[in-house]
Amino acid sequence: MSSSTAKITTTSVRKIMIVEESFDPLKTQADYQRESMSGKTDYGATANFVGTMRDFNEGDDVLSMTLEHYPAMTSKQLNEIVDQACSKWPIQNTLIVHRVGEIFPAESIVLVSVWSAHRNAAFDGCRYIMEALKHQAPFWKKEALIAGDTRWVAENTKGE
């Protein structure tokens, strides 16, 4: 089946995980692929985006970060974002993993994985989901600076 005739569906397979512990993004991705796509041979492209915590922001050294969310709305919004992506590209499967709680530099904050028959849908779908998550999913970051004070991140930048 070519990408132009592949069925676009808003009920595609997906898994959304909000986790409180540090996670290994590529192991999580591989485990989920094994669990959800075993026996499948029609996917030819997988795009993964991993967001990692930096130790600097706005010119300051950051010690740690605390991520808060609105649980009931988070899963609803992320499901809607996946539905939107699935209505635009022939996506076969999606995995979103997002950390909450206290997080330290070099730990993964977010993983978005998208499986499709061809790379365009995988790349474009993954980027779309990540950008929409950044601007629609109800998560908030509070930074603890090396200098000793704390501050809320005011807003996410557009597609940088």
Binding site: Y70, M73, H98, W140, K141, V153, A154, N156
Partner: peptide
């Protein structure tokens, strides 16, 4: 603003039993 976990604008009307959330710009990811 979200009403029952869906984004709404400030002109939206409130109904009995609604859960209304107010929050600053989101900063996840």
């Amino acid at each position: 603003v979200a009403i029952n976990q869906e984004y709404k604008d400030q002109k939206a009307l409130i109904n009995d039993g609604d859960e209304v959330a107010f929050f600053p710009p989101v900063t996840g990811g």
